[in-house]
Amino acid sequence: MKLHYEVPGDDFSLAGKASTEVKKALGRLGIDPGIIKRAAVAMYEAEINMVIHAGGGVADVEILPDSILVKLEDQGPGIPDLEMAMQEGYSTAPEQARELGFGAGMGLPNIKRNSDDLHIESAVGSGTKVSITIKLQQGATDQA
């Protein structure tokens, strides 16, 4: 199964909506709730990042027999130093992000903790592509 979402960057009331829809779709497929929660949280943080840092983008979700793949792609400013961005507490988020309840530099670490595999491709000036893999077997990480 494949799902596709456009994530607008100019309407904060929609930030996170795609992820809630994915969570519902995964629930209907009868996937383990702990696994669904990890996929939903990882995607939610990445979706919020697209909105607050990159002016929106697109999200694609693919449910395979053994895994859930979530790809989020934007044409934003890119991440100059990925290693630094991955550190807990590092944030360049604007004040507006804090009003949403985000922007404390916990997003990428949260994504990493919840993913079985995380791959980020980013180029300054052209955008960021976040690829999250969640395996469908139990007990892959600590939040199940």
């Binding site: 009331s13 939610y44 309840g101 939040q143």
Partner: peptide, 24 residues
């Protein structure tokens, strides 16, 4: 009030108290 904290640390089915009043 920080939603990333909620997602990072909450494990059980809690009641969430927050001053953040929005859809997020």
């Amino acid at each position: 009030d920080l939603m990333s904290d909620v997602m990072a640390f909450v494990k059980e089915h809690v009641v969430l108290l927050t001053g953040l009043v929005n859809l997020q």
